[in-house]
Design a protein around this nucleic acid. Structure first.
Lengths: 222, 222
DNA sequence: GTTACTAAGTGTTAAACATACACTATATAA
DNA sequence: TTATATAGTGTATGTTTAACACTTAGTAAC
């Protein structure tokens, strides 16, 4: 069966840049392409839009099918449509970025992709299509959001120490922050509470453990 | 001639929300639809992507064809793709917003649309498709940009007074600003220079006329 | 030509916020 | 007991923002 149109139609895909934090590094989720073009290359999870499917639903579905990751924070990033960006046919890609807390990064790659894996953001393999540009834009957007939004809490596990949280901000902004000023600022947002527990983690004083007060809420700050 | 695909393809359009300032009001450019669906309704200028055409080029082309407006500041806004947003077929709309200085708002509507006109943003007619939602998002984006970017200069004519510039900020932010604080802040950006001329405009003291120092430059501020 | 009117133009003060900076506390391990 | 490593804490200074009212220089009306 084929589908006919009076005028040529581009294909539409969604692609998602999924970030998490592991080993004190910002990590990105990639899938190895099973088929041409770019067979064997790594790429962002994503794929073709079903004709009755919402755009964000497509992004979430492809992500689930290819990597097993679901239930994450996701937001539209930008739409890429350079006429030559896919060698097969004209493809418009509506891209998203997403954040997974570091305690929910287990992968169950499905049949669509041969493999799925996390990569440190500063050590990515060669990427299919224009996916390197998509990732760079997503990283910039995320860094900018650390300045005026509480979106970063979406990257945190259930509980964490203030030092761990500070290191997330430092990784995203690519700069060191002053410990006392950071603590004053982040506690002043009134979005963290102590759990009462402490974490022993090496031969030194244990750290207080915090949780986010209202984890789903993303606020504009400053 | 028809075009065939193994899988159904959505149509892709671009739509543009073009803003300007006239009569101390924020105005938006609309076209009256000549054909069904929504024949006779007002809508954003826009139309179907040519299969070899870049997305932004499509937005600029449709705008020129339908309204005669060209050579403006344009930026991608968001991609709308609700499955039911167009009654004809599945349509993904990549939307843009654009700014025209108030001394270049002459319209030359072409054959694609029956008519084109500027409307005050607070007095829009009923709109086709989901265009009301697109406009609302564009307006919010623009208001947010007044806080951290010099994009607003793209709305200004060659020369203007500080009071005129202040009223642009007030319209976009929907709040009154203090005259002394505004002048201190805007002159502190070091992007304005006096032309030396003055504008007589009513039975009161004439205002100094300014121009933007580097009109093409859009900076992040604060 | 005096007066009424209108928007242009101009500084200071107080409060809030951001930045810079160094030592003590509490655990583990040798 | 001592060495080591990260957790945890406060102050002082500079910068930015916010609040606030009068004088100036034109036009228009009488």
């Amino acid at each position: 069966m084929t589908y006919q149109y009076a005028y040529p139609h581009p294909a539409v895909t969604t692609d998602v840049a999924v970030f998490t934090l592991q080993n004190q590094q910002l990590q990105l989720l990639l899938v190895r392409r099973a088929r041409a073009p770019y067979a064997g290359s790594w790429a962002l999870p994503g794929g073709f839009l079903d004709i009755r499917e919402d755009l964000e639903a497509c992004a979430r579905r492809e992500l689930l099918e290819e990597t097993g990751v679901s239930d994450l924070y996701i937001e539209q990033l930008y739409t890429f449509g350079h006429p030559e960006r896919d060698p097969r046919e004209r493809v418009i890609s509506v891209t998203y970025y997403a954040l997974v807390p570091s305690d929910r990064t287990r992968l169950h790659p499905g049949s669509d992709a041969a493999d799925a894996a996390w990569f440190a953001i500063d050590d990515l393999p060669d990427l299919a299509f224009d996916h390197a540009a998509i990732i760079e834009l997503a990283r910039e957007r995320l860094a900018a959001k650390t300045l005026y939004s509480t979106i970063i809490f979406q990257l945190m596990p259930e509980t964490f120490t203030l030092s761990e949280l500070q290191s997330v901000y430092e990784i995203l902004r690519r700069e060191q922050l002053d410990k006392r000023n950071f603590r004053k600022w982040i506690l002043g947002l009134d979005r963290l509470e102590e759990t009462g527990a402490k974490r022993r983690n090496g031969n030194h004083r244990p750290a207080k453990i915090y949780r986010v007060k209202n984890p789903g809420l993303i606020e504009y700050i400053r």
